[in-house]
Design a protein around this nucleic acid. Structure first.
Length: 473
RNA sequence: GGCCCCAUCGUCUAGAGGCCUAGGACACCACCCUCUCAAGGUGGAGGCACGGGUUCGAAUCCCGUUGGGGCUACCA
């Protein structure tokens, strides 16, 4: 296990917005490849565009990856701190004729393009031998003939005719390197062997190949372009359009291991039908060559399913521990110092099998810790006033509970007996009691809840509802 | 417009020429279980985009059509 290989991968997000699940999936696949090969996973922040980059987004990326358990072996690298490297590479490119200065304004290029059949830059400055410097951009001289082939592990060979690739800009006129240049310089410098990224980068990959070959004799890395993740309209997930920030899922109460499992299956599946995969299984079984080519819809419903399974697989102790941040938040629907850990623990197993996200917990235990306790009028009316015997049941229960042993079994027997008096099944008998004591027609099992609530509060709540019902009828 | 990618149930997928009467999972529906709601169990409906080839045989290979998507900045 201590043998290391030379496999080196990198995850290179740009800090220009919330870190979304598509990026997380890309990071995961990179990480799996690194772990499987016992190689290295590097994290590099692509912040060459200073205006769009912001440290807060970098923090978000770092936090999200940490939460997911995707650890990096080298980094964080910031492209913004590596300008010397880029300048050096640019100087070499200019010196050996691969790059040239260009002072064409955009509108001039567009004007000339109108009269041409091929779109893009027309190579106007190619042989003008402009002296590179301030106010002039640098363009890469793309061969007029031939084909640049991208060998892609998931898509096979993809050919691009060089004549369809324009002489693209690699350095802005203000001297800043462009992404396409910085990426290659860094990948060469860091000895990256596998470039695993989203499919949207495929069209610019021949440019990267050309730069790589102009800059280095080292063999090209293997490429793997992953299918993009799409929304319900089958458009690429976007930070602006779609609310899919990893951070949001964390706050909603998704488990990182469920998220990882779901993400892993978005574009890849093991040979047999297994869907619940441990990290170790993903690491040993994942194959880039088996990654699907078509876009995948990020389906929250399916994520929910996985999250529910993972929550239910927790031991009670683990569950309680995971739940703590969600029952101690400021926005919890009860006075924070009313919270009682022991009582929560007692109910925990019952909650655990009912929820799909940890964020749902407060609503389940609100009845226990919220005092004063009030009931939604619509709910109350439906449960208490639509049925004439509801009030009678409340009274009967009030009377019987005042002397009962307060354990679930005893309480249940009492209610069954009361139900018989009214010729009702238990399902019907429990309804008004539930609303009166728990505030909702749905929720945790009633008798366990009553027992934990305790006689005093149960009686008080019954009295309260009886009073309201009497007044209203 | 140009370049490129993609195409199995609504969704995620299994399927690498006969094992396919196309399998699983989510979602959906029904039933069972049941103090509510869930969870769980059982069952059901639902798909190879279309057209040509190749082949004894095609979801699987080839071509085309259609449809979807990505890129097309001195963004990343």
């Amino acid at each position: 296990m201590t043998t290391t290989t030379n496999v080196r991968v990198r995850f290179a997000p740009s800090p220009t917005g919330y870190f979304h699940v598509g990026g997380a999936r890309t990071a995961l696949y990179n990480w799996l490849v690194a772990r499987q090969a016992n190689g290295s996973f590097l994290l590099r922040i692509e912040d060459t565009d200073r205006e769009r980059s912001d440290d807060q987004w970098t923090d978000g990326i770092v936090n999200a990856l940490s939460w997911l358990g995707i650890t990096w072996d080298e980094g964080l690298f910031h492209q913004s701190e590596r300008h010397e490297l880029y300048n050096d590479a640019v100087a070499r490119l200019v010196a050996n004729g691969h790059a040239y200065a260009c002072d064409c304004p955009r509108d001039a290029i567009d004007e000339r393009t109108k009269t041409r059949q091929t779109p893009g830059y027309d190579g106007f400055c190619r042989d003008r031998n402009l002296e590179p410097g301030a106010g002039k951009a640098l363009r890469f001289r793309v061969p007029d003939l031939g084909v640049t082939t991208v060998h892609d592990l998931v898509r096979g060979d993809v050919d691009f005719a060089n004549e369809t690739i324009e002489d693209f800009v690699i350095v802005k006129s203000n001297g800043d390197p462009l992404y396409v240049l910085a990426v290659v310089v860094d990948d060469v410098d860091m000895g990256i062997t596998h470039i695993i990224r989203a499919e949207e980068h495929l069209p610019t990959t021949p440019k990267a190949v050309l730069i790589w070959q102009a800059l280095s004799d080292t063999p090209l890395p293997a490429f793997a372009h992953l299918p993009v993740l799409v929304n319900e309209k089958r458009q690429k997930l976007s930070k602006r359009r779609d609310r899919v920030a990893v951070e949001d899922y964390r706050n909603l109460g998704y488990l990182p291991e469920a998220m990882i499992n779901y993400l892993c299956l978005l574009g890849w599946a093991p040979n047999d039908g297994r869907e619940l995969l441990a990290i170790g299984e993903m690491i040993s079984e994942f194959r880039l060559e088996e990654v699907n080519k078509s876009p995948a819809f990020f389906d929250e419903k399916r994520l929910n399913h996985f999250n529910g399974l993972y929550i239910r697989a927790l031991t009670t102790d683990e569950f309680v521990e995971r739940a703590m941040p969600f029952v101690s938040r400021d926005d919890v629907p009860w006075n924070k110092d009313k919270f009682d850990l022991q009582r929560f623990i007692t109910l925990a197993p019952l909650i655990q099998e009912r929820i799909t996200t940890l964020g749902e917990i407060p609503n389940y235990i609100k009845f226990l810790f919220a005092d004063p306790f009030d009931i939604d009028t619509a709910v109350f009316e439906k449960a208490m006033l639509k049925d004439s015997s509801s009030l009678e049941i409340l009274r009967a229960a009030r009377s019987a509970f005042s002397e009962a042993t307060f354990d679930p079994e005893s309480l249940k027997k009492i209610l069954i007996t009361i139900g018989e008096q009214f010729d009702r099944k238990l399902a019907k008998t429990q309804a008004p009691i539930r609303v009166a004591t728990m505030g909702s027609p749905v929720g945790l099992p009633l008798f366990e809840s009553l027992a934990i609530l305790g006689r005093a509060r149960v009686l008080a709540r019954l009295d309260h509802s009886i009073m309201i019902a009497e007044k209203t009828r």
